[in-house]
Design a binder for these strands. Structure first.
Lengths: 185, 185
DNA sequence: CCCAGAACTTGTCAGCGACAAGATTGCGGG
DNA sequence: CCCGCAATCTTGTCGCTGACAAGTTCTGGG
């Protein structure tokens, strides 16, 4: 018999949620199923997340943190804006579950402070990249930023929903697409 | 007492679903609630859609049809590719519920023939636009098409999830964004 | 050592989707 | 005209779910 206290239930449930969402999408996930997967009673997870939305909010926050880290890392080793876009796409494809949840405000507690913090951090990395780009293209900062975010986000979304699939290497295709918008690096 | 036969229950349920999804997102919708809104017993809608996924599939198909019509109409009056992109965005903002459901394959019967037909029609309109564009830019047809779809789709998604909002006129912003990718018209 | 609170369980409730079986209605063939 | 049949809608039920309440077990700080 497993011990009464799980040890790190919170992390375990989050991990199970990632698996479940990756398989069946955010709609096909129940707290009770996650509890079962983790070997805990049906109300165990509630204590850590309060809500189903609370669980997904925690997942989204984790996602923004991962994204911020990834963006930060590539900004450290290159100032290629295209490369930053590819990093965004790579994150979305590698962390499909996190990415899906991050952009479903109807499933989240959008006012959660931890979520806001993580999102702002990721936003700052993105904005920093746009700013660096601005040295080349003055004016239209806002438009350029929106365009950049739109194109990588759209690509990631379309790929993840199976609308772009055609045997190609997604990262390479993403690179060519991003390069169409900004320069040739 | 209302008559036993509703008259056009199918259409009524679809309309109610649009309202409900627009308000609460696709997750916050139940067949039973739609049945109540329409004034019909809890199992009424089932007969017309078989499934909850069936209902959403019908909605998605309707969405693709509307999109195809819209794209076709603007292709008839201009060959500006940017304008075609703005039409895509305008559709997504005006028909938020349809648009959301169209790109959630985990909620749909993706193999539904009516859905496939409608989707193909919309895809053909889009592809036609890209082809016309190809007269200007040879080669890279595939890349250009993906880039165009990505940027308008990303813009629409980000706007609809509240990530771009800042008091600006979305269509005008979309126009500037699309123009960054292709030409200046 | 002990006890306050954190971590987890058990029990319960209403709402949901799916299904089955029955009631009502309109419609086409005779 | 009417009969029967199929489409449409209702009623009833099942297992599952999220939320909540109350109880049980563990753990760490004083």
């Amino acid at each position: 018999m497993p011990p009464y206290h799980h040890g790190d239930l919170r992390r375990a449930v989050l991990a199970a949620a990632v698996d479940a969402i990756t398989e069946h999408g955010p709609a096909g996930v129940s707290l009770r199923d996650l509890a079962r997967r983790v070997g805990v009673s049906h109300a165990g997870p509630v204590h850590h997340f309060k809500d189903k939305a609370g669980l997904l909010t925690a997942l989204a926050a984790e996602g923004y943190a991962l994204l911020a880290d990834a963006l930060n890392a590539t900004r450290a080793e290159t100032d290629s804006f295209v490369e930053l876009g590819v990093t965004y796409v790579r994150f979305a494809l590698r962390h499909k579950a996190h990415f899906e949840v991050m952009f479903r405000p109807d499933l989240l507690h959008t006012d959660d402070p931890a979520l806001a913090r993580a999102r702002d951090r990721a936003g700052a990395e993105l904005a920093g990249g746009v700013e660096a780009l601005g040295e080349k293209r003055t004016g239209e900062q806002r438009t350029a930023g929106v365009a950049a975010w739109s194109i990588v986000h759209g690509f990631a979304t379309l790929w993840n929903t199976g609308n772009l699939d055609s045997g190609e290497n997604p990262e390479e295709l993403a690179h060519r697409v991003a390069a169409m918008l900004f320069g040739d690096d």
